[in-house]
Amino acid sequence: MIRLPMVLFFSALLFSAGIYGVLARRNAVLILMSIELMLNAVNVNLVAFSQSLHQLTGQVFALFVIAVAAAEVGIGLAIVILIYRNRESINVDEINLLKW
């Protein structure tokens, strides 16, 4: 039986990797993927607590998160494609029109 703290540690690691990706990467697709990492870290947490507390609520919530993540990735990729078509680039440093 895997102990809860181990799982939480794994999940924190996963989340930190996601944050690093979101903040450090320049490629929009990689940023989206990093967001997926963060979401799934959360999912791991939810499932772990569900198991530990013997409640199914967390697992149901994880299912919802997966659904939302799928939708989010769909929209995000669509935006990235459109940006690429317009600007021949998906480097987020160059996508900075919305500023003063």
């Binding site: 940023i31 996508i95 900075n96 500023k99």
Partner: peptide, 17 residues
């Protein structure tokens, strides 16, 4: 304050986190 509005999404994310 306008310089905070850099247009760089990742910098916003830094503030957020």
């Amino acid at each position: 304050l306008k310089y905070l509005q850099s247009g760089n999404v990742q910098r916003y994310a830094v503030f957020l986190f």
